[in-house]
């Protein structure tokens, strides 16, 4: 290392010191510990008892754990509804909002606003709207003569939560809008000269150019779906009959209600593995449909 290099390294380390300490204490150490705990029987009791190594037992237990499978089913079913709905709606809205029409700024603001609302507050608002006797949805349904829906009942609860998630697409819409601005105008004009109509331009120009942004949003949505906790925690407590018992809720309950820290850590690692696997699939498929300019 030359003298200059050494000096650079020294000053870089000085600037990075807070982050490096934070990374060690609040990230690397917890990750390592949690990996270790996931192979341990470790109950967080009042006079603390050291973790006991039990090998793969936690992971084996999962195979026969009905709640684990239920929470996984719930999360995947929710993802299957909320993800495509959110992706399609946000892209559609962004395309409409990108057109040069009157009142654009007002539309944009209204669509963006809900994504600002704290999850705890929006859970309360929707809990009240979904209320089967007094909620606004059933009032409206009764008014048009359809009758009542038990929005947070056994069957409808999960779709209801997926519906609610769509309310928060504003963030994604903004990211799409930014991406849409980057589409070279001459590309669209060239396509137009070649006789491509609106739809053809959308399919052959806009979507391919936008594909890295779509991909980014997809990956973020996958990560986000697997950390849903606040809304079902407040609105349904995972019920009825565990119909909305999300994976993260199970991790949380295992850790802080049942105090099985070892099992909770194992659950978290399986969650990370699933998210990484899904992301890897997204990356793999991206080679076919994402075009980097």
């Amino acid at each position: 290392m030359t003298r200059q290099e050494r000096r650079n390294l020294r000053s870089a380390l000085a600037f990075l010191a807070p982050w490096l300490i934070g990374f060690a204490v609040f990230m690397a150490l917890p990750i390592a510990l949690s990996f270790y705990y996931s192979f341990c029987d470790y109950a967080l009791t009042a006079p603390s008892r050291p973790p006991v190594w039990i090998g793969l037992a936690n992971y084996q237990q999962m195979l026969h754990d009905e709640l684990f499978w239920q929470s996984l089913r719930v999360t995947l079913a929710y993802a299957a509804m909320a993800l495509p709905a959110g992706m399609l709606l946000s892209l559609g809205l962004a395309l409409m909002l990108n057109a040069n029409i009157r009142g654009q700024a007002v539309y944009r603001t209204i669509i963006f606003l809900p994504s600002l609302i704290p999850a705890a507050a929006s859970a309360m608002i929707w809990l009240w709207m979904f209320n089967s006797r007094l909620g606004v949805f059933n009032h409206l349904l009764r008014a048009v003569g359809i009758g009542e829906v038990n929005w947070l009942g056994d069957r409808a609860a999960l779709p209801s939560l997926a519906l609610m998630s769509v309310w928060g697409v504003g963030n994604t819409v903004v990211i799409y809008l930014a991406g849409l601005q980057d589409i070279p105008r001459d590309l669209l004009e060239a396509a137009e000269l070649d006789g491509a109509d609106r739809f053809a331009r959308l399919i052959h120009v806009t979507i391919p150019v936008l594909s890295p942004v779509i991909f980014f949003n997809l990956v973020m949505a996958i990560i986000g779906t697997f950390s849903v906790l606040t809304v079902p925690y407040i609105m349904t407590h995972g019920g009825p009959n565990n119909a909305t018992y999300f994976y993260t809720m199970y991790s949380y309950d295992t850790a802080f209600h049942f105090l099985h820290m070892g099992y909770a850590s194992a659950l978290a690692w399986v969650q990370l593995a699933i998210v990484l696997a899904l992301t890897a699939v997204a990356f793999w498929s991206a080679r076919k449909w994402v075009h980097y300019a």
């Binding site: 705990y37 967080l44 950390s227």
Partner: peptide, 19 residues
């Protein structure tokens, strides 16, 4: 550093509490 963005909170939640 970027990779840490992808770590879900539950992975560190338990051991952070422990720490």
């Amino acid at each position: 550093m970027l990779a840490t963005i992808m770590i879900p909170f539950p992975v560190t939640m338990v051991s952070l509490f422990r720490i």
